[in-house]
């Protein structure tokens, strides 16, 4: 079942196209890695999929019961303030704001779900801790829990390991992979080749004016894929 489908899309800013003729689809249960150099249109792609900007041309459709504001989004860390006073539970609960029915406060069910998500990510003990006092890796787990509050279908991570040390990064990748094996569809923008190598099933590579979309195996045989691997120091030929 396809959850998101983009057809013949032109991405760009203020009428300036970066990539045109882009078609892709995200299957239910897929693990899609979006890679590409800076300025290749990755962040515009993120905004377009989230519905924050319209594509210059083409259409993006959401299917399989997925609504536009039902994407569990993990934004780049740079957007969040470091000194913001907030408890972990407050952060996680804010994930389900988009489908709130009540005017004041959260329902008991929503609170229960927040605690469950924290437990799933191993952050249950820190639920009343101050978000700003957590380590970078713990903060990312909390933000993942918040994303899971927004949806159980699809999580969209934007450069999730920026600023994390290698050990914490691989722990985070492990969590993401586990979520994927549990049936959650993953889309991840990254400049890091490792999740693409290990866990991803599908690759979208954006490059100046061209792109690759296909399975990981096809990608490694493609020109773009071989170039990217070579630059990342994984050239075995």
């Amino acid at each position: 079942m396809i959850l998101i489908e983009g057809k013949d899309i032109t991405l760009g800013y203020e009428g300036q196209g970066i990539i045109s003729g882009l078609s892709f689809s995200v299957e239910d249960g897929d693990y899609l890695c979006i890679v590409g150099e800076n300025g290749s249109g990755k962040s515009t792609f993120v905004k377009t999929v989230l519905g924050l900007v319209e594509p210059l041309k083409g259409t993006i459709s959401y299917r399989g019961g997925l609504k536009k504001n039902e994407i569990g989004y993990l934004p780049q860390q740079s957007g969040i303030q470091r000194d913001f006073p907030s408890s972990v539970l407050e952060v996680v609960l804010s994930g389900c704001l988009n489908r709130r029915k009540r005017l004041f406060g959260y329902t008991a069910d929503e609170k229960k779900k927040a605690l469950l998500e924290l437990e799933r990510l191993g952050m249950n003990r820190e639920r009343n801790a101050s978000f700003q006092e957590l380590s970078g890796g713990q903060q990312q787990r909390v933000l993942l829990a918040r994303a899971l509050m927004a949806t159980e279908k699809l999580i969209f991570l934007d450069e999730p390991v920026t600023g994390l040390d290698p050990k914490t990064s691989s722990e985070l990748y492990e969590i993401v992979d586990e979520l994927n094996r549990g049936g959650i569809t993953i889309m991840m923008v990254t400049h890091d080749i490792h999740p693409a190598l290990n866990d991803a099933r599908t690759i979208l590579h954006l490059s100046q004016g061209r792109y690759f979309f296909g399975s990981k195996e096809e990608y490694f045989r493609s020109d773009l894929g071989r170039m990217f691997m070579k630059e990342a120091g994984h050239d075995h030929h």
Binding site: L50, L52, N69, Y73, F84, E90, S94, L97, R100, L143
Partner: peptide, 23 residues
């Protein structure tokens, strides 16, 4: 302020996430 407390919180804490989830 009390009616929109949670929305103001979300908008202040992380505008990118809030916008993406339809706030």
């Amino acid at each position: 302020y009390s009616v929109f407390y949670h929305q103001i919180y979300a908008t202040t804490f992380d505008p990118a996430f809030a916008t993406a989830t339809g706030i």
